[in-house]
């Protein structure tokens, strides 16, 4: 929809230009794909700062085997990279037409419980690379970066530049399970298991923020349940009742452990 209050759209071409265009005030927003920003009224906004002119590479395979996903990498670009990536894209409520413009960084910064790029990045031990206004760079795990429903640890004027996936996570065996009230509707629970030197189980969509449980090896049923019992709040929205989300998440987690243990 039209954002009628927006009177300027800046398209910086480099980091200095970005810092100048985006002081981080309440009237200014970063524009990546725009698929969420343009989907709801934003009467508080006066300016948009388009990140797509910065030329960030979508996917960079690092010499150490890691993968750097540019924040402006689209879901369509990401989906082609690996089966788990594609599964996560398919967990998006939006259609393949949304994949063409929606970005990894935008999905994470939106911080919806069912944000599948949060699911993916948190599950693969991803690290958010944050550009500060004075040329600083800060890193933190994506699992900690998303702090709640529509909240993140981002600071004023900070920009999510990329997500770094360590080589170890990319080498791990993974399994994804999803539950939703409808076949292609928004997820009620997305659970991803990642088995490498240790086993990490990441719960999203069912909870208000990502929960990543790390076990030295595949856990037993009681160990798994004990971990999930530590989830303080199961999310409540039209895409699933909290008690059901807790229940199906435990089921999905058991299925993942069984699959990866097979």
């Amino acid at each position: 929809m039209d954002l009628h209050t927006v009177t300027a759209l800046h398209r910086p071409g480099d980091r200095d230009g970005l810092a100048a265009a985006y002081p981080g005030g309440p009237g200014s927003a970063l524009l990546a794909g725009g698929t969420w920003l343009f989907s709801e009224p934003q009467p508080q906004l006066r300016e948009l700062v388009d990140l797509t002119g910065l030329g960030w590479p979508a996917l960079v395979h690092e010499p150490d085997g890691g993968l750097t996903i540019g924040a402006t990498c689209t879901l369509a670009e990401l989906a082609a990279e690996a089966p788990l990536f594609r599964q996560c894209c398919r967990a998006l409520a939006g259609s393949f037409k949304i994949w063409h413009t929606a970005t990894v960084g935008g999905n994470i910064c939106l911080a919806l419980p069912a944000g599948p790029m949060t699911s993916l990045s948190a599950a693969l031990d991803g690290v958010a690379v944050l550009w500060g206004p004075a040329g600083t760079v800060r890193r933190m795990p994506v699992a900690e970066f998303v702090t709640g429903v529509r909240t993140t640890a981002i600071r004023p004027a900070e920009v999510l530049r990329a997500v770094e996936i360590p080589a170890s996570a990319l080498r791990a065996r993974t399994a994804l399970r999803r539950a939703a009230l409808t076949a292609e509707g928004r997820s009620g629970s997305v659970v991803i298991g990642c088995l490498g030197e240790s086993f990490a189980l990441t719960v999203t969509a069912a909870t208000e923020r990502p929960h990543r449980f790390v076990f030295p090896a595949l856990p037993s049923g009681p160990e798994l349940q004990a971990a999930l019992d530590g989830v303080p709040t199961w999310y409540d929205d039209p895409h699933g009742a909290p008690d059901w989300r807790a229940h199906v998440t435990a089921r999905l987690a058991r299925e993942i452990v069984a699959e990866l243990g097979a």
């Binding site: 929809m1 759209l9 524009l31 725009g34 698929t35 969420w36 920003l37 343009f38 989907s39 948009l48 388009d50 797509t52 259609s95 393949f96 037409k97 949304i98 063409h100 413009t101």
Partner: peptide
């Protein structure tokens, strides 16, 4: 040539 939802596609793009 690529399908998009034009309601969430910034026109200037």
């Amino acid at each position: 040539g690529s399908a998009v939802h034009s309601c969430v596609y910034p026109a200037q793009r």
